[in-house]
């Protein structure tokens, strides 16, 4: 069963969220979450740090990996940044290229 959370849909009143937010996963976060795109239902305001808190709670192994980032629209995002339903959101675990 997919985890349910609720984020604010700024186009619709609270409680009527029918849209879902998708979160891309890579590397170890893909292994932990078990799919390359995580789908979350949302109906309250959510920041990057709220998303991390949710992920760490829902997937306890996420809190054991090195500090990971969230990318919003293909840019590293600050913890206080707000997330919107049409954003492209991705989990960026510690990188290891080169």
């Amino acid at each position: 069963m997919k985890p349910q959370i609720y984020i604010y849909d700024y186009n619709e009143p609270y409680g009527s969220a029918s849209k879902s937010m998708r979160v891309k996963t890579f590397g170890i976060s893909k292994d932990i979450i078990g799919e390359s795109t995580l789908t979350l239902n949302v109906d309250k305001p959510m920041t990057v740090s709220d998303l991390k808190e949710f992920l760490n709670k829902q997937y306890p192994k996420m809190s054991t990996i090195g500090t990971y980032s969230i990318a919003v629209n293909q840019e590293y995002a600050d913890n206080h940044q707000n997330l919107y339903l049409d954003d492209e959101i991705a989990i960026i675990p510690p990188v290891s290229g080169g």
Binding site: G27, I28, A71, V95, G97, G98
Partner: peptide
């Protein structure tokens, strides 16, 4: 900087 910033992962 590539090793620090670029989203590439090595298994």
């Amino acid at each position: 900087t590539l090793k620090e910033m670029v989203p590439i992962w090595k298994k």
